[in-house]
Design a protein around this nucleic acid. Structure first.
Length: 261
DNA sequence: CCCGCAATGACTCAGTCCAC
DNA sequence: GTGGACTGAGTCATTGCGGG
């Protein structure tokens, strides 16, 4: 893609160019901006700026906070949300999941939280991966027994985690399952400090997983990316690739490092 | 393709209103 | 009184379109 320059893009209609210039100026201020400041920074004559701003107020692209001061309007948020809704996690993840699968040759899962469970919404795997247990897309798993589920629990308030434990009884599937609250809390502390989560044959004997979080533009945890493999085949060196892939998907969703959790 | 006309847009100026 | 926001009128430039 061609590099954008700092010069505003030339449009065939002058007023469009000026409108964009005003929006850019408004976007560069966190507080409402006076007409004087807007005309000075944009280089437009005050009356010209005023006319354009006035029309943008009518169409809600700009808010007139009080006479003479302006800020970006809610219409932009509405349009932004339309664009945002187009960027689904699955769409953003599919190519990167395939690449991670090609590198590890293990099953790569994308899952989201629904209530007290995680739901698998996509998967990259090959028939010859050797996995005995492959959970179908749409399949579910309890939060406390899955790596992605632990990621979601780790961002919950302590009160919410206790409530989850009470509701579900922390039912176990095998001898490795975490079934008591104290142990779960210790595990979640570990998840928070590491930034990734593991499932050590807790859901299925013979299957281990590791997961990294995918965050949206507001920093919210929206999905988990996990690698599941036969217990003896899961390699720690994949962890870096997993975390990096999750970060790339987050970036595609508009997440900026340091912008939030 | 060029020309003329009408519509639209951009701009300036003059003036009013209002807050300080 | 002064400065800034805003409006209306007038002028000039640009654009679109149809006819020759």
């Amino acid at each position: 893609m061609k590099m954008e320059t700092l010069e505003p893009a030339k449009t065939s209609i002058q007023v469009i160019e000026r409108m964009v210039a005003l929006l850019d100026v408004l976007a560069s201020y966190s507080d409402p901006v006076s007409l004087k400041e807007l005309s000075k920074v944009s280089g437009l004559h005050p009356s010209t700026a005023h006319r354009i701003l006035n029309d943008m107020v009518v169409t809600r692209f700009v808010d007139r906070v009080e006479p003479g001061t302006y800020r970006l309007g809610m219409r932009l948020l509405e349009l932004g949300n339309v664009v945002k809704s187009r960027l689904s996690v699955r769409e953003a993840a599919v190519d990167l999941m395939r690449a991670l699968h090609n590198k590890t040759r293990q099953t790569v899962n994308l899952s989201v939280r629904q209530g007290d469970e995680i739901v698998y919404i996509d998967r990259a795997f090959s028939e010859r991966s050797g996995m005995q247990v492959v959970r179908a897309i749409g399949g579910r798993g309890p939060l406390h027994l899955t790596s992605t589920g632990k990621l979601f629990l780790s961002v919950d308030e302590p009160k919410a985690i206790r409530a989850y434990a009470t509701r579900t009884g922390l039912a176990g599937h095998n001898k490795n399952s975490i079934t008591d609250l104290a142990r779960l809390e210790r595990e979640l502390t570990l998840v928070r400090s590491r930034g990734y989560a593991r499932d050590n044959e807790e859901l299925e004997l013979g299957v281990r997983c590791m997961a990294a979080g995918i965050h949206d533009d507001s920093g919210k945890l929206v999905a988990g990316l996990s690698i599941s493999a036969p217990a003896d085949r899961l390699q720690d060196e994949w962890l870096e690739d997993l975390v990096n892939t999750a970060a790339q998907i987050s970036a595609t969703l508009g997440h900026r490092v340091g912008a939030g959790v």
